[in-house]
Amino acid sequence: MMQDKPHGRPQLKKNGFTFKQFFVAHDRCAMKVGTDGILLGAWAPVANVKRILDIGCGSGLIALMLAQRTAETVQIDAVELDAQAAQQAFENVQQSPWPTRIHIHQQDIATWAENNEQRYSLIVSNPPYFTPGVACSSPERDSARSTSTLDHQTLLSSAALLIEEEGFFCIVLPETVGQAFIELALEAGWHLRFRFDVAEYANRLPHRVLLGFSPSAGETVLERLAIRAEDTRYSENWCSLTRDFYLFM
């Protein structure tokens, strides 16, 4: 544990991004601030949540977004394996409006889950999804994007140990990976409660999918969003989802 004591875009500044209420430095993180994390942080259901867990928090982006969206009483734990990314997340949190609400833990999630008795009403993750052997620009980025460091079975089993019975486990994945993840989750006893397909343009197929699972059965809510309209301008739905975070929106 490390903590004891232009329109439609965030603003680039000093190797990071400035949002309306906080700044995220990411120069020491293999995975930079991007649309996937912003989607998950803006979309994840936060009604009535009491405690949140971010698995593989990277720069701390999603944890910071969720802190902005929730009440002062909501505590957020964020677990990150990579030491440099965890340290940068800690620094981002300390410089944010919520330094006492977000707690960064530099540890392997499987080990952390086995030794933690806390249960969470919301668990989020922007997880690795490439199979080992897919080349990336650096060993650090390869590690962050490859399922060799956090395979999806381990992610599901760790979340199962930590989720409340009525809680939600939410992730963002490429649409091509999403169906396989759904099947794996259903086999493990999860119930799909939310599916939010995201396309770059209104006239294109979805390229990302946000999924929400729960240990409890219930209705599955299906939604779709296009980031840009056919005229290439940002869609009203995208602006509505993200305007609390992006500058100049």
Rank of each mutant, 00 (worst) to 15 (best):
P128E: 04
N237V: 12
K50I: 03
R195W: 03
E114I: 03
A71G: 06
K32M: 07
P174C: 02
R28E: 15
D82A: 11
A113E: 07
Q84P: 00
Y246Q: 05
S158F: 06
I227N: 10
T147R: 09
L161V: 01
S157L: 14
R69P: 07
M65D: 13
E164W: 02
T70K: 08
S240K: 14
L155A: 01
C239H: 15
G37K: 01
P97L: 13
A86S: 04
S143C: 07
V46F: 10
T242R: 05
L66N: 02
A67M: 07
F196I: 03
T176I: 12
V172M: 06
A89Y: 02
S146V: 12
T220L: 13
I104F: 08
Q95G: 05
E219H: 00
V24W: 09
S157Y: 10
C136L: 13
T111H: 10
A188K: 11
G133P: 12
Y246D: 08
F19H: 10
V24C: 14
I38M: 11
F248M: 04
P132Y: 11
L150H: 06
F248W: 04
Y234K: 08
S235G: 11
E187P: 00
R193F: 00
C57K: 00
P174T: 01
G8F: 13
E80K: 02
V46P: 09
A47H: 10
D108M: 01
S138Y: 09
E140M: 12
G60F: 09
D82P: 00
T131P: 01
A71Y: 00
R193N: 00
A86D: 02
F213H: 03
A188N: 03
A135D: 02
R145T: 11
T242E: 05
A229Y: 01
A42M: 08
M31A: 14
L161N: 08
C57G: 01
P139R: 12
H207S: 12
D151A: 13
A89N: 08
F23D: 03
G34V: 07
L39N: 04
G56V: 10
C29W: 05
F130H: 14
I38F: 01
Q21T: 15
N203Y: 07
P45G: 06
T100C: 03
H7T: 14
L61M: 09
P127V: 07
A113M: 12
D142V: 03
L64T: 08
F17V: 01
A135C: 02
Q95A: 15
P45R: 03
D108N: 14
Q95D: 11
S143H: 11
S138M: 05
G8M: 13
L53Y: 03
E219Q: 01
Y246S: 04
A159T: 12
E223L: 13
R51N: 00
N115Y: 00
C57Y: 01
S214Q: 08
T111L: 11
I52K: 06
W238M: 13
E165M: 12
G60H: 10
M1T: 12
T70I: 09
R204Y: 07
D77A: 05
P99G: 02
N92F: 08
E175V: 06
